[in-house]
Each structure stands twice: as structure tokens, then as C-alpha cells.
Design a protein around this nucleic acid. Structure first.
Lengths: 344, 344
DNA sequence: TTGTAGGCGTTATCAC
DNA sequence: GTGATAACGCCTACAA
């Protein structure tokens, strides 16, 4: 129960002033006598006044709210991203509305429409797959949109992206394996149509080429981006006339699935097969053997995504100046799955 | 850019009707001629009209929005909870505002104040620790509050709770260990002041008593609720004159820390020490040996928490009828850490 | 320094 | 059936 709705009018009545004076007093306007201002503020507090954000937004034209669209908050990578976004938003006086799409087109559309109605000032999208259709909805948003780890296909005037350098990360990972003496390095791919996957495979191939190692098409195995993809890949790879001695996986979950299948199959990691993932999800350091991987600077990406949105706001706080797409670098984290040298 | 702000007035102008008619037409009121209604709806779509949720809320007195307060969305248990809440909210036409408190009192207060200003229709709190001070803030909210896995100390008229049966879960877990032949069963506790911990320890003790096993105070070791607590507990337990042959941990993270330390210490799990956790976080099935634990019906709890909030709303959709505190039962999930019988 | 009078975009209550 | 008109709670010229 507690405090019923109390408006500036109620406060005005009790303070024997007009509601405009209350409004000014509460926003610390210099136009009101210090004395009355203090009196009004005290009174408002006593009465349990709470400003109505909606009414304010209605007249001011902005809601101090940003929408965050995710496939599922259950994904640890996305969760960390959202945490960073929420945290940064809080520091700037913004609020986060969460919308999960479950990767279903209907819900994606519904989410965007909802955010439009709520008049969010900006939107951050972390669905790694942003189809043309989806993008079209986003463009109707009349608010700046920042994509995290996904590529804008249409490139609306107000749509920008921030993402990890997939190519470079995969390159580093592959070089790491090569530096350990591996010559036959496999790649387990992710979901078929993913841009990420294309780029990561590109880095893998280029690193091999750079080292003068010829590409072996049979060493590229189709995965799913989930653990099952990694599990299924093991028998395929091991059935080859010349099995690989090392493998780069599209992501950590693929690698973890692979670890699991390798264990069942009696393969010793990293001795029989060195394994590297991508992402550095929390699980990566907990599995045995702990996973070597490319760490995405998740928290940084989240915070920066928010800053980009703010920079795109009409008059908003200018973090620096103009906004452009941002590419961040991942970091190679060496653990047990690629080398027998123990670590944390 | 896209569509600028278009209001019902704009539509009214183009349709040569009053804005009231447009309002009625858009809400499918029977009071408007079918023909004009269709015409207006078509026009509104063409013009890219999007209703302003804030203006609507202002007059209707409810926002179709609920606030979710978490310590950190990064916790997999909480993430799953939030996912379920968001999903259920969507189905009921509600939107979720996310606020993370980082367990800092300042931010807790700020979060509550923000939700108050945003005029959320209800609030779900998943901070496992709800202090008296915090509760006081919550009571000022003038909106129903549902606590997940935490105990309301003041028990405001509008504050209810849903949580897992800690006592029963710990009881089941302990009985499981006893049924495997263990007589010396240890307990590693969680954060000192947690209600959860008290209840779980109670279940542990009662199960032992029930089996006619005398309680050995030295077998209760202080933990932290985090991995470090489990790690630190291993040397303490093993230094005992009669070390335990099994251990129940306050939660999974404690158990995982224990697993790690045991591994380093050359202890064989479950042969030297059988281990059971609590929660069944995703990690539990991925660590080696996979963790036996008590699974919390997370998704169900999230969905039900939302339903409780809805039921508490003034006129809101009545799921069933009166609301009361809810206790759900966890489920024993047997994996490798307590028995050598292989599984999953 | 303060008060009056709009108006933001809706819905709702009246008349017509 | 439809159109004025008045709220909802706030901000902000414009007056005083």
C-alpha cells in the first residue's frame, strides 16, 4: 500500500504555492528562492512524492530508457553483455528495458514494436543474427540502434555496430596451434549462415596460408555452434586417413562438446588433439582440461555499445564525437586444452 | 530516422475525423462504424503510426510494465529466472524493466526509486538477501512485490515470496548420501547470515538425526557460497582425525570449488569423498566429475513469480485467486560426484 | 521570484 | 456513430 499517488499539485497545495513553483523547486531551478526551494523539497520528501517519469517523458520527448534485445539472457556471453550495458546505463541515468526474442521472427517483431511504443531513446541488439526483415523493423524505430556482434545488412543511417574481430581472433588462435608444432589443424564451423563463422574460418585459413601450410578441405567440419556440433565432429575427424592433431572450434560450446566426445572416445587432450575455442565463456575455465580460447572483451563491448547509443542521441551527452562502427580485439587465453603447461 | 512521431491527431486530420474516433477505431471499439474503422486502421498503418505507451499509461493508471531487481544478471540461476519472467511477461502483454543492484545498498535504493518513478505495476526481486532497510524501500513502492528465494522480514501487505524448499532439498540430498552407505557426512555452509543456509543446514542435520547418526560439529565447515569457500574447506576437512566420506555443499559453486581443490589434493571423487551440491546450475553437469545436486525448478519459479505479481494487481488477470507465499520442491539429480554409476 | 496558461498523446465522459 | 472537452502529471513559455 504505502504512499498513494502524490503529484506536484498536492505538494503545491500544502506548500501554498503554484505547481510550477514546485516543479522548479524540485528541479533545483535557480529561478526559485533558496528558502522556498528547500521548504518545498523537504515537504515533497515528507509527503513521499515520486516524480512520474512518464509524464515527464511525455513533455520532454525522451524517456531516459534504452531497449536491449537479446535472443536469450540465458547465454552467459549475452548475460555479461547485458550486465555491462545496464551498469553503464545506470551511471548515465538511463534505464534498461529487456526484450528477448528467442530467435523467433514473431517475437523479434513484437519486441521492436513494443520498444517503439515505449518510446525508448535507443536500442541495443545482441541477436547475433540480424536478418534483412528484422533490420527493416529496426529502421522503423526512429531511435539509434547499435548492433553487438552482428552485421547490419542495410546499414540504416542510425544503425551502427560493435563487434569482436573474428578474423584476427581466429588467426591468433591458429597461429598459436601452429607455433606448438601442429601442421594438421582442423576447423569446426558454426551455424551455416553466420557472418561470424565466415570471418573466423577466414582467419583460420589465412593463418595456415601464412605459415605455408596447405589447406585441407576435409579438415573443415560442419558444426552447429552448440555442444552437439562439437560432439558430432569427433568421429568425423578421427575417421580421416590423416586425422588432425589440433582443432580450432567456432566457439567454446562447440569445443566443450568436442571435449566431452573426445573423453568418451578415449582421446587424450591435448596430447592426441589440441583444442582451441572462441569466446571465453565462464565454463571454459571450469571444464577439464580447461579450454584455450579467444576471449571477447564482453564487458567493454557492452559499455561501449551503450556509449555509442548515447552519442547517437540528438542532444545527448557527447562521449567523444561522431560514431562509427567499432571493432574490438579478442585475447588469446592459453589453458590446458592446447598445451600441457599447467595454468590456473 | 524513419517515421517521425505520428499521433492520433495526425491520423485524424488525414482521415477527416476527430481524434476520438481514431482512438476508438484503433482500439477496435464497437462504437465506430466498421467501414470507418477499417479505413482508419489502414491509414494508421500506412502512416506508420505507433501508439505512445506513456500517454496511454498516464491516463489509464497502469504501465503494463514490471520491474525485475537482480544482484547480477551474470549469475546463471538468476539469468534463467529472468528469462522465464520475461517470457511469461511477454505472454501477458507486460514489459520487463531490468535493474541490477550489484548487492550495493545505494544501487538497491536507486533501483527501487527508479522503478517507482517509472510507475511499474509490480516488482520481482531476486536478490537473495533482502535486508530490513531494503524491504522498507520496497514497501514504499505502492506496487505488489514478489521475492524469489528470499524471505520477507517485514512482510508488507503486498509482499509475497516464492522459493525452493531448502530444508527438504538438503534433507533429500543427505538421505541420498546416507543411502549410499555414508555415515560421516560433512556440510559446507554458505554466507553467514543467509536464511537459505540455515534452512539447508537444518535439513542436513535432521536427515542425519532421522537415520540415527549423531551430529559431529566438526563436520560443519564454514564456506562462502562461492568456489573459494569450497576450496578452503578441503584441507580443513581432511585434517580431521576422522575425515568425512561424503559432503553436502551449500550450493553448486561451493561444490565446484571443492572439486577443484580435491583434484589438486589428489583426492578421488566420489571414491574418497562423495560430493553433493545445490541449485543445479548449468556448470554442474559439465564439470568432471559431473555434480550430483538438488535442482531448483528455476523456470517454473520465474513464471510463477510473474503470475503472482499479476494476481496481486488491482483488477489484473486473475490466474487463480488469492496469493500466498509459495514453496516449490527441488529435485535430486544424481551424477558422478556421488556415485560411480555413470550418467549423462 | 512566482503564478497562469497552455500542451505533450492518450483515453473517457459527455453531448449531439 | 461521432465530436467536443476534460482529464492524467509534468514542463515551460509568457506574464506579472
Amino acid at each position: 500500500m504505502a504512499t498513494s499517488r502524490i503529484s506536484i499539485k498536492d505538494v503545491a497545495l500544502r506548500a501554498s504555492v503554484s505547481h510550477s513553483t514546485v516543479s522548479r523547486a524540485l528541479s533545483n531551478s535557480a529561478l526559485v528562492k533558496t528558502e522556498t526551494r528547500d521548504r518545498i523539497q523537504r515537504l515533497a520528501r515528507e509527503m513521499g512524492y515520486s516524480p512520474d517519469a512518464q509524464a515527464r517523458s511525455l513533455v520532454q520527448g525522451r524517456t531516459q530508457t534504452i531497449g536491449v534485445v537479446v535472443t536469450t539472457i540465458t547465454d552467459p556471453f549475452i548475460a555479461e553483455l547485458v550486465q555491462a550495458i545496464e551498469s553503464a546505463a545506470y551511471l548515465h541515468g538511463y534505464t534498461v528495458i529487456l526484450a528477448s526474442s528467442s530467435a523467433e521472427p514473431d517475437r523479434e517483431l513484437a519486441a521492436v514494436e513494443m520498444l517503439r511504443s515505449k518510446r525508448v531513446d535507443g536500442v541495443i541488439v545482441t541477436s547475433s543474427r540480424v536478418g534483412t526483415l528484422y533490420q527493416e523493423h529496426l529502421n522503423r524505430l526512429a531511435a539509434p540502434v547499435v548492433l553487438v556482434n552482428s552485421h547490419s545488412q542495410l546499414g540504416g543511417r542510425y544503425t551502427f555496430a560493435i563487434g569482436v574481430d573474428n578474423w584476427h581472433g581466429a588467426c591468433r588462435a591458429t597461429e598459436h596451434l601452429i607455433s606448438l608444432g601442429h601442421r594438421r589443424v582442423a576447423y569446426i564451423s558454426g551455424p551455416a549462415d553466420h557472418h561470424d563463422d565466415v570471418d573466423r574460418m577466414g582467419g583460420y585459413q589465412d593463418a595456415l596460408g601464412q605459415a605455408g601450410i596447405e589447406l585441407a578441405p576435409e579438415l573443415v567440419v560442419a558444426g552447429t555452434g552448440r555442444a552437439d556440433g562439437g560432439e558430432a565432429a569427433v568421429p568425423k575427424m578421427m575417421a580421416l586417413a590423416q586425422p588432425p592433431s589440433a582443432v580450432l572450434c567456432y566457439n567454446d560450446m562447440t569445443a566443450i562438446g568436442l571435449l566431452r566426445a573426445a573423453r568418451r572416445g578415449g582421446l587424450s587432450i591435448p596430447d592426441d588433439l589440441a583444442v582451441v575455442g572462441f569466446d571465453d565463456i565462464p565454463l571454459a575455465s571450469y571444464v577439464r582440461p580447461a579450454l584455450t580460447t579467444i576471449r571477447q572483451p564482453t564487458a567493454q563491448m557492452g559499455a561501449q555499445a551503450l556509449q555509442m547509443v548515447l552519442d547517437l542521441l540528438p542532444d545527448g551527452e557527447p562521449g567523444q564525437r561522431a560514431v562509427s562502427d567499432v571493432v574490438v580485439q579478442g585475447e588469446l587465453v592459453v589453458r590446458e586444452s592446447s598445451t600441457t603447461i599447467q595454468e590456473g
